[in-house]
């Protein structure tokens, strides 16, 4: 464990909690892409099956359980509890255009053709594009609530911190995992224009609005 990875995990946990509280407290999931949340639940489910097979540490197990629990709770709130506030007209990204090619890619490019490893690879690839329906929805509505932009910032920051963690681990431990690094780069790059808008607008107290 190093500082970058810990900061990344904290940022990721913060993002998940911000979203959960936003929906629960405002009793509304307006502006939130349910599809992205389904994809995140799928990412955690396929990545954390090793909860059943290997114990790494108390921290590792606890965080995985929290991530899985919160992501399913978020999906449940969007599609059941506060379904009336779900904006399905603007959440139109075709998830199958992401899941199917990535499933194929994870069968072709992986470290080991074993079930758990293929699922882990699928999860890493899927996570890199899972935010697309949400970014697509923000661009369609042309704006995002401030709390949603904080959620997106924390979520984007987490993988950027992981990139720093992998640089650190490369020099400190000689460890590197090219699949995770390439997917993490793609994932972070997808947030770049959002990061620019967040820093130039939201941090100046303005509302996040995309140029129409």
């Amino acid at each position: 464990m190093n500082l970058f990875r810990l900061a990344g995990d904290v940022s990721h946990l913060l993002a998940i909690i911000i979203l959960l509280l936003k929906i629960w407290r405002t009793r509304s999931c307006a502006g939130i892409s349910g599809k992205s949340q389904i994809l995140f639940a799928l990412v955690f489910t396929t990545r954390y099956l090793d909860l059943l097979t290997t114990f790494i540490s108390f921290y590792n197990t606890t965080m995985k359980v929290i991530y899985i629990g919160c992501s399913y709770a978020t999906v449940w709130m969007i599609y059941a509890k506060f379904k009336a506030t779900y904006d399905s007209n603007h959440d139109t990204f075709r998830m199958e255009f992401l899941v199917i090619p990535i499933a194929a890619l994870s069968l072709l490019v992986n470290h080991d053709f074993a079930p758990l490893e293929i699922l882990w690879t699928f999860s890493i690839y899927l996570e890199s594009v899972a935010i697309l329906p949400q970014l697509f929805m923000v661009s369609k509505t042309g704006e995002a609530e401030t709390i949603t932009s904080h959620y997106l910032f924390a979520l984007g920051l987490y993988r950027a911190l992981y990139l720093m963690n992998w640089i650190w681990r490369f020099f400190a431990e000689g460890f590197f995992d090219l699949i995770a690094i390439v997917a993490g780069l793609v994932q972070t790059i997808l947030y770049c224009d959002f990061f620019y808008l967040y820093i130039t607008k939201v941090l100046k107290g303005k509302k996040l609005s995309l140029p129409a």
Binding site: T54, N60, M63, G174
Partner: peptide, 10 residues
């Protein structure tokens, strides 16, 4: 190093 041994990151 065997990468698949265990993915110790979240």
């Amino acid at each position: 190093h065997d990468l698949t041994a265990k993915h110790d990151e979240l």
